[in-house]
Design a protein around this nucleic acid. Sequence first.
DNA 1: TAGATTGTTAATCGATTAACAATC
DNA 2: TAGATTGTTAATCGATTAACAATC
Lengths: 221, 221
Amino acid sequence: MSHSRIPEATVARLPVYLRALNSLLDAKISSCSSEELAASAGVNSAKLRKDLSYLGSYGTRGVGYDVEYLRYQISREIGLTQDWPVVIVGIGNLGHALANYSGFTSRGFRTVALLDADSNRHGELVAGLKIRGFNELSAIVHEHGVAIGVIATPAAAAQSVCDRMIEAGIRSVLNFAPTVLSVPDGVDVRKVDLSSELQILAYHEQRKAGLAAAEGTEESA
Amino acid sequence: MSHSRIPEATVARLPVYLRALNSLLDAKISSCSSEELAASAGVNSAKLRKDLSYLGSYGTRGVGYDVEYLRYQISREIGLTQDWPVVIVGIGNLGHALANYSGFTSRGFRTVALLDADSNRHGELVAGLKIRGFNELSAIVHEHGVAIGVIATPAAAAQSVCDRMIEAGIRSVLNFAPTVLSVPDGVDVRKVDLSSELQILAYHEQRKAGLAAAEGTEESA
DNA sequence: TAGATTGTTAATCGATTAACAATC
DNA sequence: TAGATTGTTAATCGATTAACAATC
């Protein structure tokens, strides 16, 4: 159990390594070098070794890493040896897709409830769960020990949903609503911002186009 | 038109500033200080001013920023004064949600085609567009000048979809499939990894729990 | 022992932040 | 002119990377 602080950038890459190890296992590969694992995870090997060194010393010099053993160690470090109950609030298009997303369930997360403000939709079955009212949040959080809440509501509702999640005891929030949430200390928020991602791509795309045009001008000059 | 290089971290925040400016405009606020805008964007004001300084000098000392003017400048910098045609490949739960996501359309992006490998679904209407076959990709890219492709397929299909996008001339890819894509130089890939986000939250949540337990032990000792 | 590969060191690079001179 | 606030400087911090000693 490492008590030392693992850098944020490293933490963010652990899931990537875990996935790479899982595909190696699927391919019946039981041992690999940092070079091979790094290639599979899309990083360079120095970074991979540095990252792993924060967790402990799980490789063998001259040999490499045991895939199964390293996978277990990373899982344990992230906390995936236990099951994490999750609630999703806001069952529109996106919430619906998230509820059905098998990647959650298969990776240590279990959606225990779907909540929506629209009472007309209460009772509707989505991904095998009944949509429930928002007023049940607190009871659900306590019953299942929910620690992670997913917000997939429109932007206007997100802050108030977040406030009530925190009130109910949730301290980790994954926010899909296109708005900045303010939360007290001790609460973690991660944000997935779909249109920001496209905008960042557009910026680079525009630069490439500008560059190409500049080259064209140069050529014709 | 600034030709100097804007740091990646700054580029990633421009969409956030843009959104903050839009909500100020919605609230009929026509002028603001860096302090106010920073609060609205959830960053500190020094960082905001540093970021804006890479774009140019669009504020007035002693006064602040004109919201409309700054919004225009950031839009232009990102490249949102033009419309970006987008194709989405893989119309499962997530692709469906993305096709219907109004945040794309409202922010300078226009979905021009939905493609899926399953021919049984061709012709089906989603978000007002007919699902089409993957073999039409190249024609669509050329017809609409598509520069950005969105991959919402299962992991197993993602690399081959990506290869064919690049072959068709796409140089910016937003990848929702849980897999690492390899692409040639000059192609940008951004990855949205839903279960990684949850895993990162789980890591921190576990640490908080560990900390609380450690404190408990301390107290009882 | 020789070859291979980890784990770590140290140098470099990029991002953040506080402080303040410039200037409206 | 006095007060306010930007844009920039410089210090600090954190992340990346190459190189290599440790060691299997």
